[in-house]
Simulated assay, not measured.
Amino acid sequence: MRLASLFSALALGLAACGPTQTTTAPAPTVPAVYQARVDAGPDGNAIDIPAVRAAYLTDRNRRQRVAYNGPDAPGTIVVDPYARVLYDVMENGEAMRFGVAVGRAGTGFEGSGVISVKRRWPNWTPTQNMIRTSPELYAQFAGGVAGGADNPLGSRALYLYRNGRDTYYRIHGTMDPSSIGKATSAGCIRMFQQDVIDLFDKTDLGTRVKVRSPQESLALEGRMVETPEGYVVPTDAPIVAQTQPTAGDVVTTTTTVSVSPVESAVR
């Protein structure tokens, strides 16, 4: 019996010294539409567009085909700055939904307009009002910033007009993909480079754009709450932690994000 007990103890000891098996969770995959691309720049030379990091592709940031309950006709682009999404309205009650970065509280545009200008790798120039009110930030860019990989408008821009006049409201790409889903710009709508390229290619001049009001957003999207990371989610969505909503139905909390003066200044 003593030998049997000894052999059992030795067997357990050897098993404990044997190699242990560990499992590693697979790395998140980046969908094909968000993989790296090569695009022709403004001078015809190739510009590399990096893949979007998987960490930025949250459920609300990834483009996806969804049911659409708004009143807008197919072919309309609908921007909801409060839910931080853009809809490309399709037939049969559906839409392609994209995550976007939006303007900080108190900036932006509301109502309807049309896309009257489309530009690939556009130039950017601050307005005279921007230079006058914040010369320490914008005076250095008074001569404009040429289109290219470092331009805050990114790879494409759609220019919104109303009654034949430029509203200075743009739907455009960004050199800061980490901002998508957050409120960090001065008023325009930013998209991942890959998303704005594909939207640009299928959007015709004259396309109607509707930018929702807070009341319209509340009625169609429901109440939103901002997460500690600076994203917004519906109030019934589970999150690890959340900020307390302010008085009223639309969250106005903003998150401080470090971006260049040019990027934060785009109107």
Rank of each mutant, 00 (worst) to 15 (best):
R65G: 03
L199S: 09
S5R: 15
M224K: 11
V259L: 14
G173Q: 09
C188E: 07
N69T: 12
T246L: 12
T252P: 07
E136R: 12
A4K: 05
L160D: 03
S5G: 14
T184G: 08
T58A: 01
V211F: 09
T29K: 05
R60D: 06
D204N: 15
V145I: 10
V79S: 00
G206Y: 03
I47E: 08
Y168M: 08
R170D: 05
I131T: 01
E136T: 07
N163A: 11
R84E: 01
P26H: 03
A15Q: 02
L14F: 13
L153V: 00
M90D: 11
P42N: 07
Q21D: 10
A157W: 02
T20E: 14
L14R: 13
A11W: 08
A247I: 03
R223S: 08
N129L: 08
A27P: 00
G248F: 02
A105G: 04
I171Q: 04
P74T: 08
T125G: 13
Y82D: 10
V209E: 03
V102K: 14
A4S: 04
P177H: 00
G148D: 02
T133F: 14
N45H: 15
T167D: 05
P50V: 02
G143E: 03
L199H: 12
G99Q: 00
R190D: 02
V250G: 00
V266C: 07
L6F: 08
L218D: 13
D204M: 12
G147M: 04
P81S: 01
I239C: 14
A54Q: 02
V196G: 11
Y34T: 05
Q242N: 13
V66E: 06
V196M: 10
V250Y: 00
G41K: 00
V233I: 04
H172I: 06
V102L: 11
G103W: 00
P50S: 01
R156D: 01
V117H: 12
A11F: 13
Q244L: 14
V114P: 08
S213M: 08
G44P: 09
A186N: 14
V145F: 07
P31T: 05
E91A: 10
T246K: 12
R62I: 13
S213D: 09
V66W: 03
G173K: 08
M96R: 01
G147W: 02
Y168W: 09
S116A: 15
I77S: 05
T252H: 11
Q244I: 14
I115H: 04
V102N: 13
V233A: 09
T20L: 13
M224W: 00
R2V: 14
M191C: 11
T235E: 14
V209A: 03
Q242W: 13
R267D: 09
L199M: 08
R212T: 07
Y87M: 03
E263P: 00
A36M: 03
Q64N: 08
T58K: 06
N163Y: 13
A46G: 05
R190Q: 06
G99P: 05
A146M: 01
Q193H: 10
L6S: 07
R37K: 08
G111I: 06
D43E: 15
A105H: 10
R53C: 06
T246I: 12
G206T: 02
A55M: 06
Y159I: 05
D198Y: 04
E263W: 09
F192K: 03
R162D: 10
T207K: 06
V78Q: 07
R60W: 11
V257A: 12
C17S: 12
I77M: 05
